[in-house]
């Protein structure tokens, strides 16, 4: 749940989602769910010339499994908090494994 929890805080921030087919889509993160499916609005494709078929698309829903990377806005990430959240997640997982 850490990633879900994390991405929820990025809602209404601009992110760039890099898909496994190398398309990079930049847009406002509108929604994310537990599968890390992503809804973007006001999107623009990074290499628009290469993917002209997406130039008319204004918002997308991306299945979480096709996402390779999400480029985060650094300013919106609370690093110490994220570190601690990661520790907690690890502790939870360890606790569950037992």
């Amino acid at each position: 749940m850490l990633f879900f929890s994390f991405f929820k805080t990025l809602i209404d921030q601009e992110v760039t989602v890099e898909l496994k087919n190398d398309i990079q889509i930049r847009g406002i993160l509108k929604s994310v769910d537990q599968y890390l499916n992503i809804k973007l609005e006001d999107i623009s494709v990074v290499e628009e010339l290469k993917y002209p078929h997406l130039s008319a698309v204004k918002n997308v829903f991306i299945r979480g499994s096709v996402v390779r990377y999400v480029h985060l806005p650094a300013g919106a990430v609370d690093i110490p908090l994220l570190e601690d959240a990661t520790r907690r997640e690890a502790a939870n997982q360890a606790g569950k494994a037992k």
């Binding site: 850490l2 929890s5 929820k8 805080t9 609370d78 908090l81 601690d84 959240a85």
Partner: peptide, 14 residues
């Protein structure tokens, strides 16, 4: 908090 620590605290901070 266990499941959603980052979001909860982040929200409170923001």
């Amino acid at each position: 908090l266990v499941e959603d620590f980052y979001y909860q605290v982040h929200n409170q901070i923001q």
